[in-house]
């Protein structure tokens, strides 16, 4: 050994064993603590399931006026009425799905086009500049998007509708198109903008992991860049792109503040996007903002709605995650 002493392991066999034992205990404690930290996430999931479904079950068992059958098939949702409340969730699902579908019409094409542009066309420097911008866009608080919809987009829509009415001579007539101050369309537009970054970034990742050789094969056959992008890269990355769609729609379903602010609080069965609707999330906020007391039927009803929402989004996320995994296995 060298001439400079080292305190551990240098003082005979017994000292060496002592430090080793102490070290092993310390190592095991750290290992255990870190394991607990990672297992905590499972606890969170169990907590979500226990709290949502526990109270949701109470909602059905403790209130004789509520039946699961009525909940799933009823077309009227009015739990806040003092007399004769109604508990059919279909109007809330109607509003939620309408907003999800309309916002997808905005987000899926634009998001996919952005992804194609970033992955196939944009020079590296532009891509590096755009990606953080997308990150920031997706990080803007959703209540801000709601404000934007209510005070900016809705007035524009009102103007457009008024112009249409005038142009076709519908004003004050029976066919006059009416738009509500709170309407599904303007909420859908901002929710669409909100989920564009999600579609763009997952789709772009998928397209960039398509091997170069596929592109080169296509170019070698005389395909243009556009053809290579749309007929080779997009089909090859299709599962990743589909996953981005599923995840984005799930995000739109769970989106809360933008729709609460802009879409209104009128649960109804309608397909007219110019009317006010209420989503599942907006209902939960409406009740919570009015201080629902624990144990009241209002407070229990939000758990039933929350559990329904959780089931819908959780299933979609699992599907999206599954597709992505399969996709990654394809190319890795």
């Amino acid at each position: 050994m060298a001439d400079v002493p080292i305190d551990s392991g240098g003082g005979g066999p017994l000292a060496f064993l002592r430090t080793q034992a102490a070290r092993n205990v310390y190592e095991r404690v750290m290992h255990a603590l870190l394991f607990i930290a990672s297992a905590f996430s499972i606890l969170v999931t169990l907590g979500i399931i226990a709290s949502l479904f526990g109270e949701a079950i109470t909602f059905f068992t403790a209130n004789p006026e509520v039946t699961l059958r009525e909940y799933l098939t009823g077309t009227e949702w009015a739990p806040l009425l003092q007399s004769n409340p109604q508990f059919g969730i279909l109007p809330l699902i109607n509003g939620t799905i309408m907003i999800a579908v309309l916002s997808s019409l905005v987000a899926l094409p634009v998001g996919l086009a952005t992804a194609i542009f970033l992955s196939e066309y944009a020079p590296g420097r532009l891509r590096r500049a755009v990606k953080p911008l997308l990150e920031i866009l997706s990080g803007i608080p959703t209540v801000v998007y709601g404000y934007f919809a209510l005070v900016f987009i809705t007035p524009q829509l009102e103007r457009i509708i008024a112009a249409i009415n005038t142009a076709f001579g519908l004003t004050d007539g029976p066919g006059e198109i009416e738009i509500n101050l709170f309407n599904a369309l303007s909420a859908s537009i901002v929710v669409g903008v909100l989920i564009i970054p999600l579609v763009a970034s997952i789709s772009e990742d998928a397209m960039r992991s398509v091997p170069r050789s596929l592109r080169e094969g296509s170019f070698a056959l005389g395909a243009t860049q556009f053809e290579t992008a749309t007929r080779v890269v997009v089909p090859a990355a299709l599962s990743g792109i589909l996953a981005s769609f599923v995840i984005a729609i799930s995000r739109a379903i769970g989106e809360t503040m933008a729709v609460t602010v802009a879409a209104g609080a009128t649960p109804k069965m309608t397909l007219n996007p110019l009317e006010s609707v209420q989503t599942m999330t907006a209902f939960i906020v409406q009740v919570s903002f009015g201080d629902a007391a624990a144990g009241s039927i209002n407070s229990q009803s939000i758990y039933a709605v929350g559990a329904t929402l959780f089931l819908m989004t959780f299933t979609m996320n699992l599907i999206g995650d599954f597709i992505l995994r399969r996709f990654r296995e394809e190319y890795e």
Binding site: V4, P5, I6, D7, S8, G9
Partner: peptide, 14 residues
């Protein structure tokens, strides 16, 4: 290396 093994001499010298 000396630090993680609890070396107690003059570090600069080492």
């Amino acid at each position: 290396g000396p630090r993680i093994n609890g070396y107690q001499g003059n570090m600069d010298e080492l």
